[in-house]
Nucleic acid binder design. Sequence first.
DNA 1: AGCGCATTTATTGTATACAATATAGTTGAC
DNA 2: GTCAACTATATTGTATACAATAAATGCGCT
Lengths: 221, 221
Amino acid sequence: MDQRLSERIAENIEEMIFDGDFEDGERLSEVQLAEKLNVSRTPLREAFQRLSQTGLVELVPRRGAFVREPGPIELSEMFEVMSVLEATCCELAAQRISDEALGELEEANQRCQEAIDAGQADAYYLANERFHQIIYRQSGNGFLEKEALRLQKRLRPFRRIQLRLRGRLQQSMAEHRVILDALGAAESQTAAQAVKDHVAIQGDTFHALLLALREKKSKRA
Amino acid sequence: MDQRLSERIAENIEEMIFDGDFEDGERLSEVQLAEKLNVSRTPLREAFQRLSQTGLVELVPRRGAFVREPGPIELSEMFEVMSVLEATCCELAAQRISDEALGELEEANQRCQEAIDAGQADAYYLANERFHQIIYRQSGNGFLEKEALRLQKRLRPFRRIQLRLRGRLQQSMAEHRVILDALGAAESQTAAQAVKDHVAIQGDTFHALLLALREKKSKRA
DNA sequence: AGCGCATTTATTGTATACAATATAGTTGAC
DNA sequence: GTCAACTATATTGTATACAATAAATGCGCT
């Protein structure tokens, strides 16, 4: 009864992929999935079309939909683009950020620290996303914001696992501090570079990514 | 019989939108379009899902699909992002471009000049796209290349109309020359900045964009 | 006449039925 | 015994049928 059924299905499958419920390259049987999700093939196929645009599944004519996990190379490429988008957001934000938004940033950053102190990985993860999202918003460029959010979402599962790296959290907090100070001082170039490095480092750590991929695999039980 | 039917339909509608066949905000009747394209509603709706991801149409639950033309503000935002992506491509390309690719760039540029001399707007348009696409490719970042191509395609109709601006073509050629020289000298920062300005200028000329939008409208008969 | 409500109509959302094709299994020949 | 071709089966692609909801129209009331 809801048009968003296909959207909900898409998000559902997305989550399943992120959770590692499927093998890379695995074929998603329409009848099987439709039965599992209690829907007919029609909205399911519409969801596939969405997912194919996102790049999460590949649609092969007459063969079906195949899940498409990015390999380490593609992942580092994506992080490189992410770092550029975020740096641009930051550069623009530095020139126009409001005191109110700066306060929100400080608050989000504080939440990050609290989460670390409490050892709550998920809470840190959420607060960190919020921190970055405030910067996207403050860029003042709505299209840029949307694109950044899109990539952030796509890279979510990989950032998540990477946070477990030893010492990464405290290092990340130090980087946040640099970003915050540069934004407060309206030093756009400094702020942009700080964000760029902050994000790019995640894509540069190949070993961690490979490890992450392997963990995802093993999680599949 | 081809799975790509929904893809073909999507491209078809895309072209119609680019050609200005629809009013901004116009509802796309499923039955009407299905009849016009000689297909059933099923693959048509799948095409809608694709187009909604691209941002060309907005899907409102229980209401239908509405064409969504970007206004001048969103357009300038998109061009701003495009300039960043292209600049990144160029910066990366400067560090690793092959002599062969440099030759191709020179050739594409020459085609641009020939098209101008012959007064062939379409030929220039194609050669210019090729020029930029070579740079995307030479970035060595496949994901970045895909994203750049995506935005290039989305902005195509607006660049096209803008090329008619008096003196823009010769100015564009001069900018190409700067880019080429910087790439050849492996001066990545110079090259990147040149591309950034080269692209950004298209988004900065508000008057031209508004004019472009109006021309699209009037073209609709 | 204008407004509000009910009924009708049109349109979208979903499921099922049918068609076409790819895959797998089986049989036969070499 | 292996390979190839044919048949059977399963799966995708498309169309149509049905259900649910929103828009439109007409009627009655104030």
